[in-house]
Simulated assay, not measured.
Amino acid sequence: MGDTAGGGSVVTPLHIAVLMGGWSAEREVSLLSGAGVADALESLGHRVTRIDMARDVAARLTEASPDLVFNALHGTPGEDGAVQGLMDLMGLRYTHSGMATSVIAVDKQLTKQVLVPHGIPMPGGRMVRSVELFEGDPLARPYVVKPVNEGSSVGVAIVTASGNYGNPIGRDVAGPWQDFDELLAEPFIRGRELTTAVLGGRAFGVTELRPKAGFYDYDAKYTEGMTEHLYPAPIPDAVARRCESIALEAHRLLGCRGASRADFRWDDDLGVDGLFLLEVNTQPGMTPLSLVPEQARHNGIAYPDLVQMIVDEALHEKVGQ
């Protein structure tokens, strides 16, 4: 097993397959994450096999026969438990969360069912059939509709009283209701976007995300210059501590492994009571613009060392757990 790379210590070379790409809406982001991870692993002396996820992934993994798989996939099927279950059956070690955790955490409604009974504050709301939106609003405006199991703000729409979706929403108006049969409807929480990364039982602080225009959607996340990242977030200490405690507790309750990232909305008119967890990402991005590497860097952890820390944690897990 490799020694933790923090501080540039020597690591034991391994053969690591980096699983990336796939066919989800987040394919391009996954390819960027995977390329960064693979380059970092090679810089540390590991032998790397790059695998672009396809239907023959089991055969590709069998042929590679790696010591470890670094899962750099985002979205389905790499984040929803499918690939995790496959690797469990194959007896492969892999990074990040296991099958059961992935199934729950990728589903925003299931995540609420696990976390809310333990006192984790999350928005209310309910699942709606998309056709219901053409008949009337499921919640008072403003509200948010989103796919229950997509990441990177894919398919999110904010429905306001003066918005251009219509009232009720028009059948022919572009929006997630054209792509998904069911959507999660939640009250819109005014205020600010906050996020906290967790790895190795440690929270890495809080970043505030300020999009230059609109809200923190897919383009704002992955287009350089579209979002300002403020670290440490200019928020009261009590709110920052609450973000970190919720992120750590959600990571624990969901059974996350490796790195996770908790995303929040904070209504700054309400103080600590205005903080709501939106979701927990079990496969957070590892691109140059991604938040986990950025927060790690602010904590003195270089990108290759962060990658090695994730590898080391995976090596200590039992296969199939």
Rank of each mutant, 00 (worst) to 15 (best):
P168Y: 10
A161W: 00
G191N: 07
F204M: 14
L183P: 10
D172I: 09
F188I: 01
G205A: 08
G166Y: 12
G136F: 07
I158V: 15
G175V: 09
V154E: 01
G136L: 08
G201N: 12
E135D: 13
D179L: 15
Q178W: 02
F134E: 04
V144Q: 00
V173K: 15
G136N: 06
P187F: 10
F204D: 05
A197F: 03
V198N: 05
V148Y: 00
V173N: 05
Y143I: 03
V159G: 04
D181R: 12
Y165Q: 11
S152M: 02
R202E: 15
F134G: 00
D172C: 02
G151W: 02
E150C: 05
Y143K: 02
S152P: 08
G175F: 08
Q178M: 15
K146F: 12
S162I: 06
L183Y: 10
E186S: 05
V198K: 04
F188K: 09
N149R: 14
N167C: 06
G163Y: 05
T195A: 15
T195Q: 11
A185D: 07
Y143N: 03
A174N: 10
D137Y: 01
V198E: 07
F188G: 01
G201F: 13
A185T: 08
A161E: 15
N164A: 14
S153Q: 02
G205C: 09
L194I: 09
V156F: 05
Y143S: 00
I169P: 09
V173L: 06
I169E: 03
L183F: 07
G200I: 08
N149Q: 12
G166V: 13
E135K: 14
V148M: 14
I158R: 12
A185K: 08
D181H: 09
Y165S: 01
P176N: 06
G200A: 10
V173S: 06
F204R: 06
E135V: 02
L194M: 13
S153C: 05
Y143T: 03
F188Q: 09
F134A: 13
D179F: 14
D179Y: 14
V173R: 15
G170N: 01
T196L: 09
N149F: 05
T195E: 15
F204I: 06
V198P: 08
G166R: 08
L183W: 06
S152F: 02
L133T: 05
W177D: 00
G170Y: 00
L139G: 06
L184K: 04
S152Y: 01
G175Q: 06
W177V: 03
K146D: 07
I189N: 10
S162F: 05
G155Q: 03
L139Y: 04
K146L: 11
G205K: 08
R141D: 05
A197Y: 05
F188N: 05
R190V: 14
R190M: 11
A140T: 14
L133F: 09
L194H: 08
G136E: 07
P176R: 07
T196A: 10
P138W: 02
V145Q: 00
I169L: 15
Q178V: 00
A157F: 01
Y165W: 13
P147Q: 11
A197L: 03
R192C: 00
L184D: 05
G151E: 04
